[in-house]
Write a protein that binds this DNA or RNA. Structure first.
Length: 472
RNA sequence: GGUCCCUUCGUCUAUCGGUUAGGACACGUGGUUUUCAUCCAUGAAAGAGGGGUUCGAUUCCCCUAGGGACCGCCA
């Protein structure tokens, strides 16, 4: 026997919705752990709930993982394709008397629950069908696993430590439904075995399932994998993150222009830490990741922090890469940036990204370049007593035939001196006229990004508009 | 209600029994700046409460309180 067991982890989402942020973190931790241990990381799609599983979600999970650059080894493992094998195991368990047929109807179970509620005792299935030894013909049944009744079980969890429970708190859970379909606990146990998973790293909410799945492993005399149950991510309100929460899916972050490496870095530091280190390259995170440093308490999402980490990555991404990210971001989530402006934006990314925390910010900051509009509301903000001065500026710039910083500065300085005004008095109106907004880049940056022709063009257009308004 | 888990600044966290309890985000103040932002400087901010153990407890143990997860023929 090979006693150096290969480390194999898995991420096992069900395709019933967009990949949420907790799932992304689970995937990340599994991936990092396997890379750190030089093992494998597998993807298993748990699609046995036919009602809720959808192809579009399957595609979405795959593309999201790809976007996050969390790459699984081999092909995705589709759980529904292995159903026969699960059913087979259920029947073996039945044959070996580790499981039994339960003929209870829904009504009977409801009644049991109701009685427990009345007596104020906790409900677990009464196990009454354990005592039926002969098959009842023509009556539908489920197969239940014979859970241990006596004694205690200790789960040696790699994150939670030793978790001890009384065996009688685990009910005789269903492993095969009335329609002969396996349930989650059976399928997961069988697949984990068949995929030779060495470490099951998953959300805290699965902890109770470990006790169920371990029992199946024991009865089948399979080697039990290691378990690591990581604390859940909580919403701002401190509850388990649900799909209804804002910003609960990876898509929500993509949408506002968060970079994958930023989201990964954020997720890594949420519940895991290495000394005081905040920023981790991919190599560093693989090298330093361990299960030991995962905290035991749930953590809340902090939007400001994600943005701040994103800001760091935005500013450290090279312009030639950033422009591509911006272009495809705009195309998917905003409006397409016309090709003729790509080069201009790229050249000016230095100051555009300087003011940005996300791709969305860069998009908004550079909007004046490729989709310029000057609305009436903004025009109103311009101090009309400065119009003559502005016209004079236009005249002087046209004479210079350049909007280079030196020339502009020269012109502005003279005007400020002659008119006894402040830079602000002309800077602010100019910004509005040139960008359509009172907030934006420095005037010199705007000028150099627009170029002489467009600069003049926008000013002239503005005066035309004003003159027309006066006439009317 | 039962079972299990958790508890250090507002948030994410560091601390291998002895620290002025550290960092980051957010926040306050000051400065740089024609706006917004950036940037620089600086400030405020935490061991849930109560018992033990110990020369000494944020750290180890117990209790209380608070929070969370699970309690499906969903996964």
């Amino acid at each position: 026997m090979n006693n150096i067991q290969k480390i194999i982890t898995r991420f096992a989402p069900s395709p019933t919705g967009n990949l949420h942020i907790g799932g992304a973190r689970t995937a990340l931790f599994n991936w990092l752990f396997s890379k750190n241990q030089k093992g494998k990381f597998l993807l298993r799609i748990e699609d046995t709930d036919i009602q809720r599983s959808k192809n579009e979600y399957y595609d979405q999970i795959l593309s999201t993982l790809k976007w996050l650059e969390i790459n699984y080894d081999g092909e995705p493992y589709i759980q529904s394709k292995n159903i026969e094998s699960h059913i087979n195991i259920a029947n073996i368990l039945l044959k070996n008397e580790h499981a039994y047929k339960c003929y209870c109807t829904e009504q009977e179970l409801e009644e049991e629950k109701r009685l427990c509620l009345e007596k104020k005792i906790p409900y677990t299935y009464s196990r009454k069908c354990r005592n039926i030894f002969e098959d009842i013909k023509n009556k539908p049944f489920v197969i239940r696993f014979k859970s241990k009744i006596e004694g205690k079980t200790i789960l040696k969890d790699l994150v939670q430590g030793n978790v001890e429970i009384n065996n009688n708190t685990i009910e005789d859970f269903v492993i095969l439904r009335k329609d002969n379909k396996p349930t989650y606990n059976l399928s997961a146990a069988v697949d984990d075995y068949q995929m030779r998973i060495s470490h099951v790293i998953r959300g805290d909410d699965h902890k109770i399932n470990a006790f169920k799945q371990i029992q199946i492993f024991e009865c089948m005399k399979w080697n039990i994998p290691e378990y690591a149950h990581i604390p859940l991510i909580h919403s701002k309100e401190g509850k388990k993150l649900s799909k209804r929460d804002d910003a609960s899916t990876v898509e929500d972050y993509k949408k506002i222009g968060i970079l994958p490496e930023a989201l990964r870095n954020y997720l890594l530091r949420l519940g895991w830490s290495y000394k005081d280190k905040e920023i981790f390259t991919e190599e560093e995170s693989i090298e330093l990741f361990n299960l030991k440093n995962i905290g035991k308490s749930p953590s809340k999402l902090d939007f400001d922090r994600i943005k701040s980490i994103n800001e760091f990555y935005i500013k450290s991404t090279k312009d030639e890469n950033l422009i591509d990210k911006l272009i495809s971001y705009a195309e998917i989530y905003k409006t397409k940036i016309p090709v003729q402006f790509h080069e201009t934006i790229k050249k000016n990314l230095f100051f555009l990204k300087h003011k940005s925390k996300s791709l969305e910010d860069i998009y908004n900051n550079s909007k004046y370049i490729f989709s310029y509009v000057l609305v009436e509301n903004e025009i109103k903000k311009i101090d009309k007593s400065k119009l003559t001065i502005l016209k004079n500026i236009l005249f002087l710039i046209k004479k210079e035939k350049s909007v280079k910083k030196d020339f502009l500065q020269n012109i502005f300085d003279k005007i400020i001196e002659n008119e006894k005004i402040k830079f602000k008095d002309i800077g602010q109106p100019l910004r509005i006229i040139l960008t359509g907004s009172e907030y934006g880049p420095a005037i010199y940056d705007i000028a150099s990004s627009l170029g002489f022709n467009e600069f003049i063009n926008r000013l002239e257009l503005f005066f035309e508009k004003i003159d027309k308004n006066i006439k009317n």
